[in-house]
Structures are given as C-alpha cells and as structure tokens.
C-alpha cells in the first residue's frame, strides 16, 4: 500500500514550521506506524534530505516516548494504544495522513514532531513520591492494602506519562496526568502522610507550567493509551479542596539539640 503524508516540519523552536507533503514508498499493512516513518526516513536520507525527527523508544506502548497527533488524534485512530502500537492496516490505500506534534504551551517544540515534556518531570518532583529512605521500610506485608484500593491505585499508576491527555484536551490541560499520580499514591496507606501536601504542590506546579484547566470534556480519557479514568480527576479535585481547607501546616518551632 501507499499513503501520502502531510508532516509538520520545523527545524527548531525558533524557526517557523510548515507542513510538507511526502508520498510514501510501498508499505506493508502489517507495519507499525513508526516503522512506516522509519521507511520514509530511510528514503529521505537516501535522497540527502533531512529525515523527519520523531520521538520513540520502546515501541511496545509502555515507555511513553512516542507522541504524534495523527489526523487530529493523539496516538492515532485506535483507543487504548500508543502511536507505536498503531498499524498501517488501520489506514487505506491512498489516504492522506496529517502528522503533527503535540501542541501545548507547556510542551515546547524541539524539532519537527518532537516536543519537550519535561514539565511532567517538574510536576513529579514537587510531590509525586512517598518520602521513604532506602533501607528504612518495614516488612512489605506489615501494611495490608485492600485489594480494591490496590487495583484502583494500579489503574492510575499505569499512566505512561506520554502527554496525549494534554495533546487531546482543547485546553491542553494536564489534569489526567497529575490526577493519576496523585490518586495512585493517595489511594495507598503508604501515601497518606503526604497526601494533601502532595496534591497541593503538584497542582500548583501544574498551573505554574501553563497547562489549561479541566472542562470535563473527556477527550483525555478517550485518547489515553492506558484508558485512565476521569474519576481520578474528581479524586484530585476532592483532595485539593481538602488541602486548601486545611491550609499550610504550622511551621515547627525553631531550635533543636
């Protein structure tokens, strides 16, 4: 099969970008979408043209590196998979496929289809952890966790941090990502001591990064390769409300040994 690609090309953040159209070489319908781009890039390189830069790594839908907005939908036409798990058999002979980078102010463009998603790391650094020093942990079975909570925490924890939620949301909101992090730890007994501090710090950093707000359209959930639920956003909203109501903790009195 052959398709036509309309690809966003941009040399770097500061130079203007534009769409460029390429006719693909002959493709096999069993190719993954990224393998199709590999093949196109090989043919570009053989013509001494600059290959299309795109992010990818594990190619099995778990590392969250691949991105791409394909015909207006992050991660392509299928529900519950990442771009790397999208196969050419999902397209028809002669289709024109529009490929764009994730668009969000908080994800500045690096080159062509590559964007910088470090904002997610910065949010994580504000509180996406349980403060436990190596070696200080009690026996794992000394903290029972109800199975349904553990399962729900896992539903949230399987977020791959790809940013498709941001890319899909008309407001470029990162709520699904942040809420997955907040809920994963907030659902476990181990995460309780820092629960409200965590949600406050992470949400505030999310705002700081310039992501939009949630208008409950559900686009994020629809494109999420792990189908993470909007329920978690509600959970985050609730935790944040409690955190606001509790206020900042009292500063401990100065002094010591």
């Amino acid at each position: 099969m052959k398709v036509q690609l309309k690809v966003w090309r941009q040399k770097n953040r500061n130079s203007p970008g534009k769409f460029v159209t390429y006719d693909s070489p002959d493709l096999n319908p069993n190719m993954s979408f990224l393998e199709m781009l590999d093949v196109v890039n090989e043919s570009l390189a053989s013509k001494s043209e600059d290959p299309i830069a795109f992010d990818h790594d594990c190619r099995e839908g778990i590392c969250g590196t691949c991105s791409l907005v394909i015909d207006g939908k992050p991660h392509g036409p299928h529900k519950g998979v990442a771009t790397c798990q999208t196969y050419m058999r999902s397209f028809k002979e002669g289709d024109q496929i529009v490929i764009e980078p994730f668009r969000a102010r908080a994800f500045p463009l690096v080159k062509d289809l590559v964007v910088d998603r470090k904002a997610f790391d910065r949010i994580q650094q504000k509180g996406g952890f349980i403060s436990v020093r190596t070696g200080s942990a009690p026996d794992a079975n000394s903290i029972p966790v109800p199975k349904e909570n553990a399962d729900l925490a896992m539903d949230a924890a399987q977020c791959i941090g790809c940013g498709a939620c941001v890319a899909a949301c008309k407001n470029a909101s990162a709520m699904l990502f942040v809420s997955a992090k907040v809920s994963h730890l907030g659902l476990l007994p181990q995460g309780q001591p820092e629960r409200h501090r965590r949600v406050k710090a992470m949400v505030d950093q999310m705002d700081e990064e310039g992501f939009g707000a949630c208008t409950v359209t559900g686009s994020c959930e629809a494109v999420c390769p792990k189908s993470i639920s909007l329920d978690f956003i509600a959970r985050m909203n609730r935790d944040y409300l409690v955190a606001l109501a509790k206020g900042d903790p009292k500063k401990p009195a100065a002094g010591g040994a």
């Binding site: 349980i130 942990a137 794992a140 903290i143 029972p144 925490a153 924890a157 994963h184 181990q190």
Partner: peptide
C-alpha cells in the same frame, strides 16, 4: 522498599 514507596503490587483479598 518498593511496597513502602507505593508500588501497587498485586494483592490478595486479605490485603
């Protein structure tokens, strides 16, 4: 260590 960090390992109904 991992359980204390909040790794959501699979659990039985007893927790």
């Amino acid at each position: 260590q991992c359980a204390a960090q909040g790794v959501p390992f699979a659990r039985e109904y007893g927790g």
